[in-house]
Amino acid sequence: MKRIKVWLVVFGLLVIVGCAPQTKYYWGGYDNKLYHHYKNPADYEKLVENLAELINQAEKVDKVPPGLYAEYGFALYEKGDLEESQIYFKKEHDKWPESQALMTKMISNAQRQSNKSAQLKDTSNEKPLALVKEVTQ
C-alpha cells in the first residue's frame, strides 16, 4: 500500500514535469490581459499599463516573447504616444528579424503621424495607417 502511494506521487510528479514544461518566454498572463481588454475595451489605459508591466518583468529574466514589444508599441501608438511607440517598434525590429518589414512600416507611420501632429496639433480624424487596403482588391 505504501509503495503504491509512493509510486502515485512519483507518477504524479512525472506527469507534471513531463506535461507542464517551463515556457520558453515570460508571458505573465498576456492571454488574460488581452482577454480582459476585449472584455473591457473602454479601459485602454489598463491595457497599456498591463503590457508595460509585462515587458518590465519579461526583460528582467530576458525572456521577452515575440510580438510583445510591438504589441506595446502599438498600444502607445493608438494612445497617441508616437515618440514612445517608435522605441518599442525599434526594439521588436532589432530582436526579431521576422518583424522587420512590418516594424519598418510602423516606425515610418509613427514618424509621419508625429510630424503631422507637430504641424496640425490635431490628428483625431487621421486614419492610423493605410497598410492593408490593397488586400481585398
Binding site: 508571458w27 488581452l34 510580438g67 521576422e98 518583424s99 492610423p128 493605410a130
Partner: peptide, 24 residues
C-alpha cells in the same frame, strides 16, 4: 499566441494585427 510562440515561431502581435486590419 502563446502555444504558437512556444512552439518556436515568430508570432505577429495579434491585437496589433487585428487593429491594423480594422483600421483599413
Amino acid at each position: 499566441s502563446i502555444p504558437l510562440a512556444e512552439q518556436g515561431y515568430y508570432v505577429f502581435p495579434v491585437n496589433m494585427v487585428k487593429r491594423l486590419l480594422e483600421d483599413d
